[in-house]
Simulated assay, not measured.
Amino acid sequence: MIDIHCHVIFGVDDGPTTIKDSVRMILEADKIGVDKIIVTPHYKKNVYNSDNVLENFYKVKSRIKDFGIDLFLGYEVF
C-alpha cells in the first residue's frame, strides 16, 4: 500500500515535532500495510519552516532505513 499524502517529517509544518514522533507514525503506517510513503510537508513561504525539509527528510529516511518502508519527498503547495 502507498500513502501519497503524509506529514511525517518532524519540525517543518503541523506534523510531528520530533524525529521520535516521525518514526512512531511510520511504524503505525507499517502496521496497517503501508510500504511506501510520499511525504508531503506544507510549502508556504513565511508560514512553515521549509528550510529544514531536506535535512529532516534525510534524517528520518536514515532512521527508518531497515524498516522496509520507502520514503519519497513531495510537497503540499498552497
Rank of each mutant, 00 (worst) to 15 (best):
D35N: 15
H42L: 04
G33A: 13
M25R: 07
V12T: 12
T40S: 11
L27T: 01
K20L: 07
H42Y: 08
G33L: 12
G15H: 04
I37H: 12
G11R: 11
H42M: 10
K36S: 15
G33W: 07
G11N: 11
I19M: 13
V34C: 12
V39H: 09
K31S: 14
D13L: 07
E28Q: 14
F10V: 03
V39F: 11
I32E: 11
E28S: 11
D13E: 05
G11Q: 10
T17M: 10
G33C: 11
S22I: 01
D35R: 15
T17W: 00
K20G: 06
I32Q: 07
M25T: 00
D30M: 11
D14F: 09
A29Q: 03
V8I: 15
V12A: 14
P41Q: 04
V12I: 14
R24G: 05
V34D: 13
I26N: 01
T40I: 07
I37A: 12
P41D: 05
V23W: 11
H7A: 08
K31Q: 15
D21I: 01
G11E: 13
D30P: 00
G11W: 12
D21H: 04
I32N: 09
D13F: 02
D21G: 06
S22H: 10
I37R: 08
M25K: 10
M25H: 04
I19W: 06
G33M: 08
I26T: 02
I38C: 12
K20M: 00
V39K: 05
S22G: 12
Y43G: 00
A29M: 03
S22Y: 06
D30N: 14
T18F: 09
L27F: 03
D14V: 03
T18K: 06
R24T: 01
G11D: 07
H7S: 13
V39G: 02
L27W: 09
I26K: 01
G15F: 07
P41G: 05
T40D: 05
I26H: 01
V23H: 10
A29S: 05
D14R: 08
I26V: 15
G11H: 10
D21S: 09
I32C: 13
I26L: 05
D13H: 02
H7V: 02
D13A: 04
F10A: 06
K31C: 04
E28L: 09
V8H: 13
K20S: 12
T18L: 05
V34T: 14
D35Q: 14
F10C: 08
I9F: 14
T17H: 11
I32A: 10
G33S: 15
I37T: 10
D35G: 11
P16S: 05
S22V: 03
T40G: 08
T40A: 06
E28W: 02
R24I: 00
A29E: 04
P16Y: 03
I9A: 02
K31M: 13
H7G: 05
K31E: 15
V8E: 12
I38M: 09
K36I: 14
T17L: 11
D35Y: 07
Y43V: 00
D21R: 06
F10T: 03
V12L: 15
A29F: 01
V23Y: 13
K20Q: 06
K36R: 15
V8P: 10
V39S: 11
V39A: 13
R24Y: 14
Y43P: 00
F10S: 12
V23E: 13
K36W: 08
H7Q: 11
